[in-house]
């Protein structure tokens, strides 16, 4: 049951990331991802299911790619 909840939270982030259009939204999603990751690690510890590990890596990669696609408001220019 917890596994499904965790997977759903990660999938939600994945879906919402497709609609993300600003750095502010991205930041919120990143915070959600970090919270989900922290909960998963706290729940499973070292014995984290491989599917969750894959999902975490996938969502993280997509978050990073999205960050790169967003307008670079953080640069000094």
């Amino acid at each position: 049951m917890e596994f499904r909840i965790f997977m759903k939270s990660l999938n939600d982030i994945d879906v919402k990331l497709m609609l993300c259009k600003s750095n502010f939204q991205w930041k919120l999603l990143a915070e959600k991802y970090e919270e989900a990751s922290r909960k998963i690690e706290a729940f499973y510890g070292e014995k984290m299911p491989s599917e969750l590990v894959d999902a975490l890596g996938r969502v993280r990669l997509q978050l990073v790619e999205k960050k790169g696609q967003l307008p670079p408001e953080d640069i000094l220019v």
Partner: peptide, 20 residues
């Protein structure tokens, strides 16, 4: 810029991306 974001994520961690 995208490469820079990926590089920062790998080197400094994901949390850095949220810290402006």
């Amino acid at each position: 810029y995208m490469e820079a974001v990926k590089y920062i994520d790998k080197k400094y961690g994901f949390k850095v991306l949220s810290d402006q």
